[in-house]
Amino acid sequence: MSDITRDDVAHLARLARLAVTDDELDTFSRQIDAIVDTVSAVGDIPDDVPPTAQVVPQTNVLRPDATEPSLPREAALAGAPSAEEGRFRVPRILGEEL
């Protein structure tokens, strides 16, 4: 019913930034296909049932617009794999300037 192929898994892995191996493509496509097949059972539910996204019994939870202390910069950068000039250093970005 679900038919998750190797190509599908390769596409999902790309979207999810996972450099999966060839072997993984085999294993994952088999497993994910079986899992998606099972969970597709929810498809029987009528469309007119309203969705529930969360079960929080409250609305309009707001924070006052008052400043709170930020982290010291050393603490902010402490876990960084690489840092330079007070900034997080990352590999070159491919893509558009935002």
Binding site: R63, D65, A66, T67, E68, P69, S70, L71, R73, A76, L77, E85, G86, R87, F88
Partner: peptide
């Protein structure tokens, strides 16, 4: 606003890099 959308860090233009940051906005 005085603070950011989802945390109490100052919403300010031109501060030293990574000085208006906290666990939430990081």
């Amino acid at each position: 606003t005085a603070t950011k959308m989802f945390c109490g860090c100052a919403n300010a233009f031109g501060a030293e890099p990574n000085t208006n940051v906290c666990p939430v906005c990081l």
